[in-house]
C-alpha cells in the first residue's frame, strides 16, 4: 500500500440478515484506491455494487474485513467521527438524488455546511456559486420537484461538493438520466478529477459511462472479477460477451 491510498479494503465481507437467514453479498473483497484516481465499478445487477458503495461511504458497516479511509480504520470510529467523515471527506451521490423536497436548491446544497456550523450567508454564497458551476444559477430559489431529473442530479452533485471533499462516491449517478445528460454529468466528474485532483468512484452498468474512468473494478457475485485499466477491462468484457 502507498501513503496516498484514500481507500484500502481487505477481505471485506457483508452478510444481510433476511427472514430466510443470512445472505452473503460481498465475499472477501480487497483493493486500494489512490488519491486522484477515477474508478468505475461495474457488475451485473445484484452483484453487491451498492452494498460496497454504502460501506465505502460510511453509511453501512461490513460484516468482516477491514476498511481504512484516509488512514483511519473505519470500524474503530464512533458515530460522531463517522458523521464527520461523511460531512468532510466524502461526497456521496445517489442514483435517486435524495434531495429534501421541502428545501430550496440553495438550502439543499448548503445543508452539509449547516452541520459544520458555517454561517448562513457564507453557506448560501458557497451553495449558489456551486449551483452556478453545475449550470443552475437561475434556479437557486426553486424546489427539487420543479426541475428535471438531470438538474436534480446536478443539485445533488453540487451538494456533494459543497464541503470540499477529497473523495466522490457516486452510485449509478446516471442510472435515471438520458444519454446526453449522463454525458454532461460524467464530463463534470472528469473535470473534478483532472482539474481538482478529487478521487472519483462511480458505479455504473453502462460501458460508455465506465469509459470515462482510468480504472475498472468488475464485481460478479460479490467477488472481484476484474481490477485493472478501464480500456482493457471494457474491451475484454466486450469480447467475452460477444
Amino acid at each position: 500500500m502507498s501513503a496516498t491510498d484514500v481507500i484500502r479494503i481487505t477481505h471485506l465481507g457483508k452478510d444481510y440478515d433476511t427472514d430466510a437467514g443470512p445472505v452473503t453479498v460481498l465475499r472477501g473483497i480487497s483493493f486500494s484506491i489512490h488519491e486522484g484516481e477515477f474508478v468505475a465499478i461495474m457488475g451485473p445487477s445484484g452483484s453487491g455494487k451498492s452494498t460496497l458503495m454504502n460501506i465505502l461511504g460510511c453509511l453501512d458497516t461490513p460484516t468482516s474485513g477491514e476498511y481504512v479511509l484516509n488512514g483511519h480504520s473505519v470500524s474503530e470510529l464512533d458515530h460522531d467521527q463517522l458523521a464527520n467523515l461523511r460531512n468532510r471527506v466524502i461526497g456521496f451521490v445517489f442514483q435517486g438524488f435524495n434531495l429534501l423536497q421541502r428545501a430550496t436548491l440553495t438550502e439543499n446544497v448548503a445543508l452539509p455546511l449547516v452541520y459544520r456550523g458555517v454561517a448562513r450567508h457564507e453557506r448560501n454564497a458557497k451553495a449558489e456559486s456551486l449551483l452556478g458551476k453545475v449550470g443552475l444559477a437561475s434556479h437557486v430559489r426553486s424546489y427539487p420537484n420543479k426541475i428535471s431529473g438531470g438538474q436534480q442530479q446536478r443539485v445533488a452533485i453540487a451538494r456533494s461538493l459543497v464541503g470540499d471533499p477529497r473523495l466522490i462516491l457516486a452510485d449509478e449517478p446516471t442510472g435515471n438520466l438520458d444519454t446526453h445528460t449522463s454525458q454532461e454529468i460524467m464530463d463534470f466528474f472528469t473535470r473534478l478529477n483532472r482539474e481538482d485532483g478529487i478521487t472519483v468512484v462511480v458505479v455504473t452498468h453502462e460501458h460508455d459511462i465506465a469509459a470515462y474512468a482510468q480504472r475498472l473494478i468488475r464485481l460478479v457475485d460479490g467477488k472481484i472479477a476484474y481490477d485493472g485499466p478501464a480500456a482493457a477491462g471494457l474491451h475484454e468484457h466486450a469480447e467475452v460477451s460477444s
Partner: peptide
C-alpha cells in the same frame, strides 16, 4: 425517516 437518512448521509451527527 428518509429525510433523517439523507441528513445523516451528508454529515448530521446523532445530536444534530
Amino acid at each position: 425517516t428518509r429525510e433523517i437518512g439523507i441528513r445523516m448521509a451528508i454529515g448530521a451527527r446523532r445530536r444534530d
